[in-house]
Amino acid sequence: MYIKISNLNFKYKNADKPTILDFTFNISKGEVVSIFGQSGSGKSTILRLLAGLETPKKGTIEIDDKVMVDDNVFVLPEKRGVGMVFQDYALFPHMTVEENIKFGLTKMSKSEKKIRVDEVLNLVGMKEFKSRYPHELSGGQQQRIALARAIAPKPSLLLLDEPFSNLDADLQWKIRQDLKEILEKAGITSIFVTHDKEDSLAIADKVVVLEKGEIIKIGKANQIFKDN
């Protein structure tokens, strides 16, 4: 298995109940997985743990046979090779689209960077917006740039936190399709978090249903949502 998560346990400092309880789950390379749950189910926390933004109380995470975290090891977020698209995109406001994307390309020559920026901008269909600033873009455009920025360094795992929550409802169907296409083209193992089963149905190969920090169902999207 490409990504192995076993027995993950986590509690926020001020919470009295654990946020994540014995989370165990494996993902094969190239799979697109959706973590589905209501707000407060702990789904975003799983992403934060995978990214290294939180430290688990117990449990291990391995990516590509490398231990990211266990009782003795903690790989810092910048060393994990994990990309993330944040719910509010977090595009650096003082940098242009191009600078935002170049930001993560540290180990490349100037010309390599240029090529990679054009590649990912083509992928998300935003080539002509290269020199814009984030506040000059619409919500949907910002999301594409955030996606391009996360994909650019070729992460081994891509995380997307509620990718559709900040967009207008009538845009969602189109963007779902676009995202599905982009992820397929990029071929990156991805996990996205959502509270909308339509999202899971449209994009995910596999769905994990989370309730109060515990996995209650795992399976193919159409099987999971068959009953309701």
Partner: peptide
């Protein structure tokens, strides 16, 4: 903290993040 976290995930250390992202902002 969002920008800080985004920068870390794009491969920058705490100190590099500080100079490139936090300080200008």
């Amino acid at each position: 903290k969002g920008y800080f976290e985004a920068s870390r995930l794009l491969g920058m250390s705490v100190t590099k993040t500080f100079f490139k992202v936090d300080l200008p902002m």
